[in-house]
Simulated assay, not measured.
Amino acid sequence: MTKALLIDSSNSACSVCITTDRVVIGHNYAPMERGHASVIVPMIQSTMTEAKTSFDELCFVAVTNGPGSFTGLRISLAAAKAIALSNNIPLYSVSCFDAIAGRVTANTTLSKTDLLLIAIESKRKELYLECLNKGGVKIIESQSLSAPDIITQLARLYQPGETVRIAGDAGSSLVKEIEKLIKPNGKSFTEDFRGVDALDITNTENFWKLFKYSEHRDYSHQVNLQYLRKPDISIPKKQ
């Protein structure tokens, strides 16, 4: 049986998911602000045990590549790359925006909207943002923006009467200003203010086809992380 290991520690949680080529068989999720490095490997081990899966049964590993916490992204990538390299299997990466968009789209209990605005927490003044139209086309590309700049960009694109779904763990901070913008004819939907979960990777476009792609051995373990902003560094003062 072919199985896959999915990992995320991109922001305020650690999560691990194991799937066959048809169904999820193991999943763990733990919210946390710090301590990802000490949690992710034991979580992988416990999820593998619960799913009765050994590493030699894996046909690929998938990991979120951002945007998110600089440290968190590197922690999950290091774990994913170590497992992929040691087992000689492919390593795939998935955008956190794509993971959240996939989760929203797959949730049949949610109303369809004209726009999907995804805001991810950066723990800074700016938020990580992406906006899609109902066809899944990006109308605001992935970037780091302040809340006022987000509203300014959305105002240029918004058409009167359009519905807007706001998602992601930073979405709640934008609700008031977006509702002001779209009144009186527009409507906002705010049911999903969660961050990324490794389980969300299964809802991304073409995920299940990766089981077929992984049979081909022409692959790279190189993953480009989406930081979207410069790191916060300072030059030490001279003594």
Rank of each mutant, 00 (worst) to 15 (best):
L5P: 05
L228M: 13
L181A: 10
S9K: 09
A62T: 06
L228C: 08
Q45P: 04
G35D: 10
Y219A: 08
L6G: 05
I139C: 09
G135Y: 11
S15E: 06
Y92E: 08
I118M: 03
V94S: 02
T64E: 07
F207D: 03
D21L: 09
P31S: 02
S38C: 06
L157R: 14
S38N: 14
A30G: 00
K125W: 01
V39E: 12
P184S: 07
L210T: 04
T47Y: 04
S188R: 07
L5Q: 08
S38P: 00
H216P: 00
H221V: 12
S46N: 12
H27A: 01
Y227M: 07
I44Y: 05
G66V: 02
T202S: 07
P67S: 01
L181Y: 11
E162C: 09
K209T: 07
I201E: 02
S214P: 12
V164M: 10
N224Y: 12
S173Q: 13
V63P: 10
T152A: 15
A101E: 12
I166K: 11
A155M: 05
Q226L: 15
T64R: 00
R74C: 04
L91F: 01
A82S: 15
G161R: 08
A78E: 04
Q159S: 14
F60C: 02
L117D: 03
Q222G: 02
F55E: 11
F211N: 01
T190K: 14
S111P: 06
R217Y: 09
S46W: 00
K112F: 04
E57I: 00
L5R: 02
D149I: 10
I235K: 15
E57Q: 15
S93G: 12
K209I: 01
L91W: 04
S76H: 04
H36C: 08
D232I: 08
M32W: 05
M48T: 05
I44E: 11
N28W: 00
I178R: 09
P148D: 14
A119D: 10
A101Y: 10
G136I: 09
N185K: 13
Q45C: 09
L5G: 05
I150C: 15
Q159C: 11
L174F: 11
A13K: 04
K187I: 13
A51I: 04
E162G: 03
Q222M: 10
